[in-house]
Design a protein around this nucleic acid. Structure first.
Length: 566
RNA sequence: CGGGACGUGGCGCAGCUUGGUAGCGCGCAGCGUUCGGGACGCUGAGGUCGCGGGUUCGAAUCCCGCCGUCCCGACCA
């Protein structure tokens, strides 16, 4: 490609709407242009990078036994009603209506399409497993699109779906995808971690997130300083504290006017929040569940959801407090009726003589102790992770890392096959629902994640595998240099290397600046200065390292440098 | 959806407080000089000042409404 023909409008200044590096540089370097919030045009350079990522993904998916297909983006509402997601997804769905008044949506993911599709093939258990994937644009009307390609309303995703006869089969399919994903992100050179993520309300299903480290990432994970523990922040289980000793105080009631929050209570009494016992009430499938955590900690509803699955967990609202006779802001676990389930986090074992609610307005108690003053029905891990918690394996200090989720794989089981009536015929002749897995890779998000990890003050610095082109040949001066540059460019192309010839009628400085901004891995500079000695200059963008090579070996040298590039 | 900021040639911005018919830099076009790290000079094109309403002799500027974009947030006793 000749730069004079390439539509790559680079910007000299940072666009006003972009804050983070990837967004700013992808705009400036001419990879993308914004059309509206969360929707971008992909320019030729951006599309080349996307194609390279797609190629890697395709190779690994195919090698893992998945088959590519293409499903529609405009979808009928009916199957989404069947699975409940027409309601559940709410505003997240782009909905539209056709001329006949039929409800349609733009696909945010495609279980509702692929599941009936496979079912319609009248499968026998002998046809399984099947794994189908596509690379297609997805649509989600995010409540707040942001950060350019990181959270768009339109994004390119590889989505794969496996269909197995049973859980054992699913686990095999899942393991194959897990390995394929590892290879994909290795080949993309993304610095990433893999964590077992929280299954949330779906419950039970194992799932893993592939997270590219990035300071600007919205997704948090927890890691031990010694590298032996990794977890989703919602799933992290800190090491429990040493158990506290026997009670030392009698239970006594305190007048604590106007102290409905832990903060106001701690201030009123002049004690640490950690001395108080927080008692949070939830409705779980109609029953009252009281969750106890130290006052300076929070309950993780995600953990509670998982614990109570398949029951639905809902925090108490005003009405619940009134109707069930609890005093909001002054709830304590003493004297609960038997129908209240008391769940305490392990961290509660680390305290005694608690200050907690007295179950009457403006009053608390002190000296409340487990066993003597209140009962605990279940000891569980329900506390939200907090900076400073210890590693459950070696007690090391845990820290929070930020990341961009670029891949997510999931064991779905029969969550979709059952409501959609998607079955195969098993060996005994009876229909059974497929045991499914789903596997996503955010292709357009990889572009942004890689830009976050590979850039400097000059611009983008693509790893070889993701760069829009491998090499740029810069004609730095007119005359002979132009001819030599052209010759080197042709030689590179004949070697199968994706090269750009910067033949624009621009000053050398402009070409250098654009080359650095766009981030070609290798630059070959052909100019009068070098030609006087029959030499050219090579630059490796990743390190900035420059070398001189003989003119007649320029293409070979560039190829070698590219080979050695990260 | 709540809070905040911002919408002025393609891009980045000034002008608005105190109303008087729009300006700077970059980019773009032409000519000349220059030519290995975002050159210089001269000339030129390009703007419904986000949209609608109002106030006024007169609105980019003041008032009201709407739209758009960006940032922060979304829930716990």
């Amino acid at each position: 490609m000749r730069a004079s023909q390439l539509f790559a409008p680079t910007l000299r200044e940072d666009p006003a709407e972009a804050d983070i590096a990837s967004h700013r540089l992808l705009l400036r370097a001419g990879f993308i242009r914004q059309l509206m919030a969360g929707v971008y045009t992909t320019l030729p350079l951006g599309l080349r990078t996307i194609r390279r990522i797609e190629a890697i993904v395709r190779e690994e998916m195919d090698a893992a036994g998945a088959q590519e297909l293409r499903m529609p983006i405009v979808l009928p509402a009916e199957p989404w009603r069947a699975t409940g997601r027409w309601e559940l997804y709410g505003e997240l769905l782009f909905r539209l209506r056709d001329r006949h008044g039929r409800d349609l949506l733009l696909g945010p993911t495609e279980e509702e399409v692929v599941t009936p599709l496979v079912a319609s093939a009248s499968c026998s258990y002998r046809d399984l497993p099947v794994n189908l994937y596509q690379i297609e644009w997805k649509y989600r009307d995010e409540y707040r699109p942001r950060f350019g390609l990181l959270r768009g309303r339109e994004f390119l995703m590889k989505d794969a779906y496996s269909f197995d006869r049973d859980q054992a089969g699913l686990e095999r399919s899942y393991a194959a995808m897990y390995e394929a994903y590892r290879r994909v992100f290795e080949r993309c050179r993304l610095d990433h971690v893999i964590v077992e993520a929280d299954p949330g309300q779906i419950g039970g299903g194992i799932n893993h997130e592939f997270m590219a480290r990035a300071e600007v990432g919205e997704d948090l994970f927890v890691e031990c300083e010694h590298g032996d523990y990794l977890a989703d922040t919602e799933a992290a289980r800190p090491m429990p504290p040493e158990p506290a000793g026997e009670p030392t105080e009698p239970l006594q009631v305190l007048d604590t006017p106007d102290t409905p929050t832990i903060e106001s209570l701690a201030r009123f009494l002049g004690v640490e929040a950690a001395r108080t016992l927080k008692c949070v009430l939830f409705d779980v499938g109609g029953r009252t569940v009281a969750v106890l955590v130290p006052g300076d900690r929070e309950v993780s509803q995600t953990k509670l959801d998982k614990l109570m699955f398949p029951e639905i967990v809902r925090p108490f609202d005003e009405e619940d407090f009134d109707r069930r006779g609890f005093v909001k802001g002054y709830v304590g676990p003493q004297g609960f009726e038997d129908d209240v389930v008391v769940v305490a986090d392990h961290t509660v074992r680390g305290g005694r003589d608690w200050i907690t609610g007295a179950n009457e307005p403006d009053r608390h108690v002190r000296g409340a102790n487990v066993g003597r003053d209140f009962r605990v029905d279940r000891w569980e891990d329900v506390v939200a992770f907090r900076e400073g918690d210890r590693c459950p394996i070696d007690g090391g200090s845990l820290r929070v890392g930020r990341s961009i989720v670029v891949g997510h794989i999931y064991q779905l089981g029969t969550k979709y096959s059952e409501p959609l009536g998607a079955t195969f015929v098993d060996e005994d002749g009876t229909p059974r629902p497929f045991v499914m897995g789903c596997y996503g890779i955010g292709i357009s998000r990889i572009v942004a994640a890689a830009a976050e990890q590979y850039h400097d003050e000059l611009g983008l610095r693509w790893p070889r595998a993701l760069a829009p082109f491998d090499v740029v040949v810069i004609a730095a001066t007119a005359g002979d240099a132009t001819h030599e540059a052209e010759r080197i460019y042709e030689e590179l192309r004949s070697r199968g290397i994706d090269a750009v010839l910067d033949d624009r009628d621009e000053r050398a400085g402009v070409k250098f600046a654009d080359a650095d901004l766009i981030g070609y891995p290798v630059q070959v500079v052909v100019g009068a200065r070098g030609l006087a000695e029959q030499q050219v200059d090579l630059k490796l963008r990743a390190t900035g390292q420059r070398t001189r090579e003989r003119l007649d070996e320029a293409a070979q040298a560039a190829a070698d440098l590219l080979e050695a590039a990260p």
